[in-house]
Design a protein around this nucleic acid. Structure first.
Length: 349
DNA sequence: AATGCAGGCAACCGCGGGGAC
DNA sequence: GGTCCCCGCGGTTGCCTGCAT
């Protein structure tokens, strides 16, 4: 008895998302909040399956996502976490709130695997390696107590989720905080645009026009949300390009489209207004805002979230790092320490 | 300048878990 | 207890880009 497909294959669009689709999706989620993905395509008119919508949101549109190069600190954390947790990208991503599991997975597969492999061939000789670049002996050694760590990880995640759920400062999207008039207007803009253009090429131009027009007619949202949403914007739309693009080519969505249009000036505001309030994923975004890469160490700690802000300059030993230090037999740790991916920051461990 | 190739990344696919009925 | 549905996760694919020849 096979599982039915998540959606009808007929009439379902695949491939890169257009900015118009993005806008529609974001607008819908702004109104209804993330979840109930099944209903998203039918309610928005998007010719996408629910999974595609969810993926697009979680991997790309969700506020608080940091894009671009991984810092050395993030890199080291990923290596550590991968050694501890294996390819549990979602769990790893939970420790890097600004990164998506997909991003981390890609980064691991494209960069870190090679790096480790290269390093291993440098110290070549005695140990065989598995596909993920970990020595088999190391894998064996880290198996000691690993399930306990996984358990702790899960406990940590549960705790984190509970904190988020209970925090009054972290509302999910609340319909009454939104401006329905603006939303409708925005939807109309988006709809008309999507009818006229289906290529991402028009992306920067169209999305800028859409947002500009929408923003012009939208009430300014509370100033308090600007930091989060602007960062969100910067991490998302701004990465792809800015406003008033002169691009007129009609090629599909490409990174070049974004890269070629970096003179973004008004869209952060647009995005700010688009969300109209603090990030949906405010827990992550809040952390993102309050943490520099180094400061994010404190994210591991059994502190409340606000502690991150209170001790911004203290690089403290993370819970995870404590585990690492506790387990002196984790040989892989030594291997990782020898990586010296960044000579300047190696003493952070 | 044209072509081929490899790398990077967004998106898709299939499976499994968990809740509702 | 069984089935269905929804969602999340990890692996994989395919397209696009940049670089080498």
């Amino acid at each position: 008895m096979g599982r039915p497909p998540c959606c009808d294959k007929v009439g379902v669009k695949k491939g890169p998302w257009t900015p118009e689709e993005d806008i529609i999706l974001v607008s819908y989620i702004q109104e209804h909040g993330p979840g109930n993905w099944r209903a998203v395509p039918s309610n928005t008119g998007l010719l996408r399956c629910s999974k595609s919508c969810r993926l697009r949101w979680t991997n790309y549109l969700r506020p608080g996502i940091k894009r671009g190069n991984f810092t050395d600190h993030e890199e080291k954390m990923i290596i550590h976490l991968q050694a501890l947790l294996g390819n549990r990208w979602a769990a790893i991503a939970s420790y890097l709130p600004q990164r998506t599991d997909n991003d981390i997975k890609n980064y691991w597969n494209t960069h870190l695997k090679k790096k480790l492999k290269k390093l291993q061939t440098g110290t070549e000789g005695h140990e065989s390696r598995d596909d993920d670049g970990l020595s088999s002996s190391a894998s064996q050694s880290i198996s000691r107590g690993q399930w306990e760590r996984r358990l702790q990880t899960d406990i940590h995640l549960a705790k984190q989720a509970l904190c988020e759920a209970l925090s009054p400062e972290k509302p999910n999207i609340l319909p009454d905080q939104l401006n329905p008039t603006s939303n409708i207007r925005f939807m109309n803009f988006a709809k008309s645009a999507s009818e006229s253009s289906t290529t991402y090429a028009s992306s920067t131009e169209n999305i800028a026009k859409l947002l500009k027009g929408w923003v012009r007619n939208s009430p300014k949202s509370a100033s308090s949300n600007s930091a989060v949403t602007q960062q969100s914007f910067n991490n998302n739309f701004a990465d792809r390009g800015g406003t008033e693009s002169t691009s007129s080519d009609e090629t599909p969505s490409t990174k070049a489209d974004y890269k070629n249009n970096n003179n973004c000036t008004e869209l952060p505001e647009a995005f700010e207004s688009l969300f109209g309030l603090e990030s949906f994923d405010s827990s992550n975004s809040e952390l993102s805002q309050s943490m520099s890469p180094d400061e994010s160490c404190s994210f591991f700690q059994d502190h409340h979230l606000h502690d991150c802000k209170q001790e911004p300059t203290t690089v403290q030993m993370s819970l995870l790092e404590k585990w690492l230090f506790e387990d002196q037999q984790v040989k892989d740790y030594n291997l990782i320490s020898d990586l010296k991916l960044d000579e300047n920051t190696h003493n952070i461990f």
